[in-house]
Amino acid sequence: MGISMENSPREMSLTSLAHRSFEEMSKYRRKEPSDDRYCLEIVRRAVLQGDDEAWTVLYRQFSENLRLWFRRHPWKDMVLQYEQEEHYVDLAFERFWKSVRKQELSFTTLAAAMSYLHMCLNCSVMDMVRDGTRPKEAPLPDYTQANAPEPLVEDLYHENEVWEAMERLLPNDKEKRLAYLHFHCNLKAREIMQFCPGEFGSEHEIYRLKRNVIDRLIRNKDKFLWRLGGSES
């Protein structure tokens, strides 16, 4: 009578590994004790070793989970106006591949690998929402000169510098706070009242402060706008 000895996952063919992985995932799904090693070995080969066939197996094994997670995502409807479901599934896989490779992550459980993949989907959805709500590029305002030279934005502009310059021009905390909610968060007066209850007395106060902020920035354009790339002389 012989004893059947199975190869360790590292020595198994990809086909055998895919079979065992599927069986073990089925057990995991049924909340039965399962062996994660086969699936984790596929992840290792696919991502850390760059094995294309293992990546195809991994994709097929998890793409359905990703689709189901996406369909239950609270921001699904918001992002479907930009791209189709498959796009987010692909982005999640791409992000997973890059992150795991870059950080040389090695998962010790299937649950950890799946949670990480789920997180990658979440990040892809969030990035799309952020991109979708980003205001379109606007040209530098020219208050006085019709023929001002083109701004050298790439050379001179730095967000933190702009923000610090603006803060220096605003005398009190309320104006700074309003400028933050207005220019950094792009919140309208009604939204500021809703998301920041108690910070401002009324929408009227918000508009008054906004006017002060914008007027102050325009008055100080010589000190301020050069940081935005304009050449006010």
Partner: peptide, 8 residues
Amino acid sequence: YLLTRLYR
């Protein structure tokens, strides 16, 4: 202009 430079 400020919005495009400072948003988030």
